[in-house]
Design a protein around this nucleic acid. Structure first.
Length: 804
DNA sequence: CCCAGCCTGGTTTTT
DNA sequence: CCAGGCTGGG
């Protein structure tokens, strides 16, 4: 089936002749006749070739969705569409990157790089940066992360003398986020009767006002939060017909991946952009919608047909990823849900091994069984470490598995969790960088104005904030004219000096690239020295992290340099300045950095695993209140989302799938009894291979006490327990002091203890500890397992006198 | 004004 | 268990 293809207004800005020779060579693997179409099945091919008008592709898991999307884009380019006119939106940077890499292989680097492909947030940020002035924003606006936003809300709540228990930052932030996702302005929010009633009923009538103030403050600070990137984009398109037209003409073709995860704002923007040519292709799977909590709505899929009556709907139902047993299990799971588009996933793959279900006594036993199993599978079927993935519901669950894997000497990588960019020392330097680029950035300023200490304390800051609010100016403005205000001379001088310093940094923005400037700033502001002088173990790690940040900035500038000569558009794609760096980095997550993860077992949440596949998958912690989460048990809608989440997890697996749950686990620092998840009950047991102790009611510890737990399992003592005892014995024998609470004054004992630890572990350095107190940690590094470094963390250390 | 250390309250998933 | 708030001594 060959389509005619004719877009008016198309300017071939990248003529074929300009493509460098080696790229053409690369292309020849896939000739113009469309060799690249040959590996596709009928529906896939139709999906690739139906290029005009609205198309919706319902793509089951493992149905070759990414392949279809990439080939489709390649196909468009082949048909003469300028890559520069294609907009492809994804939800994660990873997905965008993967697609770009694959397209690059088909159409060459130059074309691939010209496609506007990225996350909603990053693409819109890029556009907003260009158009910021239209919205009364500076083009170097800051992007507030969730922490910044919540701190700002906290400040506003306290300024308004509202009860912080009632107006919790989290809650207020969610309300605001919700409003923005639904394109409600503060004014509309305040007017909306239903919302007003709801807020009043919840005894929180002031939320509308807080939303209003929050928006004002963001605007004043030249800052947008994540939701603003969508919200303001929509506002921009509404602002003037010319602007809308400009982007409608620019983006002749729009593709949206993971369409089931779009929220109202995203959908509205998309609809506006394609209103004229209606060339929009969305790919999604209602059964994999797992982001309702952040405003995603399945309605977008259901309504799509109404908005586009001429819609072509295609269903990709053949699964190429998983064994029959896994596909059957997945189908069985999802059919329990009531709302969904009818479809049946099927596969021609072989039956595969039975799905295993592990009943573990405790969370540590669960982890041990899985670590053991990885070793066995590896030997038996010659799997590589990186072919295993452990999927869990919450990030906190990773700890036990890390320990178990470490004990077995299995290298691993944890994805997600606390991102590198959320570490204190990183945020501190970033705040300096942000402040340099955008002086108005209030959250950045509050963070660093007195760090390292320069004698500008809380009281002074409060005064400045008060003056700023009074005059409706930024705090920076006030500080620039600080001699006009009444303050102690010493503080005044300190502020003048601080302002001078930041201004000095700003002057260098144009001359230096991001890397040079960042290094200069770190040195001059005193942060680098401050960390360098901190000789405690953690101080050292912090210093190292800072160096790591420099490395990443260096990588960024080098990358941009490489791109620069080839790129058609001169904007942030090739701009190596600090401002662009900040913009890109604030939208990055931990999963995005391309740290080397070959040869490592992968640990991540189910959410993070979406869009990925692994030969062997372990889904762990299948317990009521955990997976499904306790929050979800209340509403049936949420349970369905949890079930979809389970569905997503199951369908990540190619060959081997193991499910597990524990009878007891530590949660919130307490030992708890756990019911097996209802999802386990829902599975037909015939195809299962059940491993381990069946759950027994007698395991239930009374009053959640540790002793009751010990008694209840003493008859059937778990291997985890024995392991623990063995460890303990090992410790005693080698005289390793036990670790518990300690005070900073115990420094000498501490040092002695670490000397012993050093001897015991031998392989590495035990670093000096000074001034360790509450919630500080000690970190021991040593080389093992061919990994560069291992880090052990001991919270709250103390050596008891008697060595027990 | 600064900091260490105590105390309390809260814990899903992410751009 | 852990982050953040609060307090009281320097």
């Amino acid at each position: 089936m060959q389509q005619e293809f004719d877009f008016s207004e198309k300017k071939p800005e990248v003529p074929k002749e300009e493509i460098p020779k080696e790229e053409i060579k690369e292309e020849e693997e896939f000739t113009m006749d469309g060799n690249y179409l040959e590996g596709l099945n009928g529906v896939q091919r139709l999906a690739v070739e139906t290029v005009k008008g609205p198309v919706m592709i319902i793509a089951g898991p493992g149905s070759g969705k990414t392949r279809v999307l990439t080939y489709r884009i390649a196909h468009l380019i082949r048909l003469g569409m300028n890559p520069y006119n294609i907009l492809a939106l994804t939800f994660t940077n990873k997905a965008a990157k993967e697609m770009k890499d694959r397209i690059r292989k088909i159409v060459g680097t130059l074309s691939a790089n010209s496609i506007w492909m990225g996350t909603f947030h990053s693409i819109f940020a890029r556009i907003l940066r260009i158009e910021a002035n239209e919205l009364g924003y500076p083009s170097n606006f800051t992007i507030y992360d969730t922490d910044d936003a919540k701190t700002l809300i906290k400040n506003i709540v306290s300024e308004q003398n509202l009860n912080p228990d009632l107006y919790k930052a989290n809650l207020v932030y969610n309300r605001i986020s919700n409003a923005k996702s639904n394109l409600l302005t503060p004014q509309a929010y305040l007017k909306h009767q239903g919302i007003r009633n709801a807020d009043a009923a919840a005894k929180r009538p002031q939320i509308g006002k807080l939303y209003h103030l929050y928006s004002e403050r963001c605007q004043r600070a030249g800052a947008m939060d994540f939701d603003d990137l969508l919200f303001k984009m929509h506002e921009l398109l509404n602002l003037a017909p010319e602007i809308l037209q400009k982007y409608q003409n620019k983006f002749q073709y729009l593709m949206i991946d993971e369409f089931q995860d779009t929220n109202h704002a995203q959908y509205s923007i998309a609809r506006k952009l394609v209103a004229n040519h209606r060339n929009v292709c969305v790919v999604g799977d209602d059964a994999q919608s797992i982001y309702a909590f952040r405003g995603a709505t399945i309605d977008n899929i259901l309504n799509f047909e109404k908005d586009y009556p001429e819609l072509t709907t295609l269903k990709l139902e053949q699964n190429y990823r998983s064994t029959k047993r896994i596909v059957d299990l997945a189908n069985g799971i999802i059919q329990k849900n009531s709302h969904q588009i009818a479809k049946e996933i099927w596969t021609q793959n072989s039956e595969g091994g039975k799905i295993q279900l592990v009943h573990a006594v405790s969370d540590s036993e669960e982890a041990k069984i899985i670590a053991d199993n990885i070793v066995v599978e590896r030997l038996r079927y010659h799997y590589n470490n990186d072919e295993f993935a452990i999927l869990y519901r919450t990030n906190a669950q990773s700890r036990v598995f890390e320990e178990a894997l470490r004990r077995k000497g299995i290298p691993y990588r944890v994805y997600g969790g606390l991102s590198f960019y959320q570490r204190k020392e990183i945020k501190d330097l970033m705040a300096y960088l942000r402040l340099t680029v955008n002086h108005k950035d209030e959250e950045a300023m509050r963070r660093v104005i007195n760090y390292p200490v320069r004698g500008i304390g809380k009281t002074s800051l409060k005064k400045i904030a008060a003056w700023a609010n009074e005059e409706e100016r930024t705090m920076w403005d006030i500080m620039c004219r600080i001699p006009q205000y009444k303050l102690a001379t010493r503080t005044q001088n300190a502020i003048v000096k601080f302002v001078k310093m930041i201004k000095l940094f700003a002057q260098m923005l144009k001359q230096k690239d991001a890397y040079d400037l960042a290094k200069y700033i770190a040195k001059t502001c005193g942060l680098q020295n401050h960390l360098h002088n901190d000789k405690s173990v953690e101080g050292l790690t912090r210093y190292e992290n800072l160096q790591e940040l420099f490395n990443s900035i260096k990588e960024f500038t080098d990358n941009k340099r490489e791109l620069a000569p080839n790129n058609v558009e001169v904007d942030m794609e090739v701009d190596a300045s600090l401002g662009v760096y900040l913009q890109e980095v604030s939208l990055l997550t931990d999963a995005d950095d391309n740290k080397d993860d070959s040869g490592k077992v992968k640990l991540m949440t189910v959410h993070a695993a979406k869009g990925l596949e692994f030969p062997c998958v372990y889904i762990v912690g299948l317990e009521e209140e955990l997976f499904p989460s306790a929050m979800a048990s209340k509403r049936s809608n949420d349970i369905e989302e949890e079930r979809r989440l389970f569905y997503v997890a199951v369908t990540r697996a190619e060959k081997k799938l193991m499910l597990s749950h524990a009878n007891c686990r530590y949660r919130f620092g307490k030992l708890q009894y756990c019911e097996p998840s209802r999802f386990i009950e829902e599975i037909s047991k015939e195809e299962l291979e059940e491993i381990g102790n069946k759950p027994r009611a007698s395991f239930r510890p009374q009053r959640d006490s540790h002793d009751a737990f010990k008694d209840s399992i003493s008859s059937n003592i778990s291997s985890a327990k024995r392991q623990q005892e063995k460890q303990q014995q090992l410790r005693n024998r080698s005289n390793i002091p036990n670790i518990a609470n300690f005070k900073a004054s115990d420094n000498r004992k501490l040092k002695e203890g670490f000397r012993i630890l050093h001897q015991r572990f031998g392989a590495g350095t035990v670093l000096k500890l000074e001034g360790i107190g509450d919630k500080r940690m000690a970190i021991i590094k040593f080389d093992t397992l061919g990994e560069k470094k291992m880090v052990l963390r001991f919270a709250k250390l103390m050596f008891k006198e008697d060595g027990t």
